[in-house]
Structures are given as structure tokens and as C-alpha cells.
Amino acid sequence: MFRHTTFRYLVLAILGAGALFQAFSAGYFGLEVLIEILILAILVLALDMVAGFGGMVSLCHGALMGLGAYAYAMLSSIVGLPPLAALVGAMAIVGALAWIIGAICARSHGIYFIMATLAFGQMAYSYIFQTPIFGGDDGMGGITRPDLSAIGIDLNDSRSFALFCLAGLVLAYLAAVAVLRSGLGRSLCGIHHSEERMRALGLTVWRVKADIFGLSGLITGFAGALAAMHVMYISPGLLDWTVSGEALVVVILGGLGTLVGPLVGAVAFVILKHELSAVTPYWHLVVGVVLIVVVLSRANGIFGWLEARIGARRIFPTHAAVKKVPNDA
């Protein structure tokens, strides 16, 4: 069950302040890096909902993000919908597809679930790659951003677009928290603990899993549409399984099942990538070593490690104080 703690609020405040500072002070390159972090953060937030809270480790979230990008591009450029309507449409399409994938994969577990989601991701990649209307290997260009000039915002300006993405991340985070604190989120938590027990209580387990996968898909579709708006060009590479793998690395690096951790992971991963790639082309090796250290340390990612050491101190009271419990009722 997701709970906010003082420490989590503090980390969120630091991340928010850092993003705002970067948005108002950075130059073009700094803003591009910020936007990359924000879009990745939305993706890993969605992935954490299913993997961290539901135990459904998905290797198709990269493909779902790619589908969101293509759906936005098709709806805005080919169908001619206004960009904001195309954004909502793209989210709905990806949400529906994710619900179907979740419903089909819900009966499998562990490695079989991972492989089933990987298969769906690869099918989506092949379909987009082979279908001429999507531009094949050349991808699609000429993608536009929403026109908010009526309220005095020019999203073609990097700073405004970064703030737009930040607002999007805040909304995605609040939606994820609301879902995880709802009846559906509680049931998901129960399923993660013991699927058999929840079934014995009368719960239709596959529907809960499918619902959460669909909602996670909605948020993933949002990340995909933002990615398309950001680069204004998309290619099948967006749907590659390595994008899903990278997202999973970020979630584990940050802290699985914490919602806040993946945000920390997104910041760490993108900064590490940009700083290291300026020094060596072998930056993946360093990220790999960091990931191995994090996994072997048995801490739940960077955030989990910090929360266990700093968050547990008295100045950061965690959950509601537990009552002294008698031995017998």
C-alpha cells in the first residue's frame, strides 16, 4: 500500500525545486536534459505502478510509450485532430491496448509474464516498422505541439515546454497516488501479497491486474505523446524492447514500489548518461556497475537506501505511530 512519509515529501520537494530551478535558469541544452528526465520520469512512474506495486514486471512499456507517440502523431498529423484532443486520444488508445495486454498476461507470472509482455512489445515494434503508413524505418516528422497561445504560452519555446512536461509529471504522479490509494490500489496490493488469498476472498484477480495495466498504459501513452511533441519526429526505435529494459533499470535504480524512487532514478540515470557519455563512449558499462552495486547492496534502489538510513531517523516520522500491541486480544 502506498504511503507518503515526511521523508518522501521532502524528496519530492527537493526534486520539484530542482526541476523549477533548472527550468528557469538553464540554457537550451539544460532544458533538453530536463525534458528528457521529465518524460522518462512519467514512463517509470507508470511502470512502477505495475511492477513495484503489482509485481507485474513489464517489458512492453517502452513499446506502449512508442505507440503513444505514434498515436499522437497519427491523430494530430493524419486525422487532423487538435493536438490536445490528439493527446487525450493517444492516451485512450494506449490505455485500451494496455488493458487488453494486461488482461491476457494476467494469468501468467514471473518470467512467463515478462516474456509475454516482451512478445507484445516486439509485435508492436514489428507492426509499426513494417506498416508503410507509419513511415517504416524513416519514421514520421512534422509533429506539432499543442497551441496554448490563447493563454499566453508558447510551447515551441523549450522553457515553456519543460514546464508543460513538469505539470504533466505532477498530474501523472497525483493520478498514480490516487489510483494506488483507491479500492483498486488496495486490491492490487493484496494480489501482490497473495493472489491465491485474494481469489479466495472472491476477487476477480485478472480484472484488477488488467485495470491497473490499463491505467498505467494511460500514463505511458501520455509520456509517449510528450516524447513525440518533444522531438517532433518519431521512429520505430521508440518501441524497441531496450527502451522497456532501460525503464526497468531506472525503476530498480531509483527504488521499486515507492513511486518517489523511480523519479530519483530518472534524474540519476539521465544525468549519469549525459555526464559519462561526454567522457567515454562506454558509459553503459558504468551504469551497469552502478546497477549491480545497487542490486547487490540489497537496498531498494538509491531512494530505498536513503529512506532506510535517513528517513528512518526520528526527525522523519514514517507512518502513523503504531500502537503498543497486547499479546492476546
Binding site: S182, G183, L184, R186, S187, L203, D211
Partner: peptide, 9 residues
Amino acid sequence: QARRLFHDS
């Protein structure tokens, strides 16, 4: 209430 969205069961 087990599948209720945006409402704590």
C-alpha cells in the same frame, strides 16, 4: 468496492 477507482475502499 475492490475495484473502485479514486475512492479508498
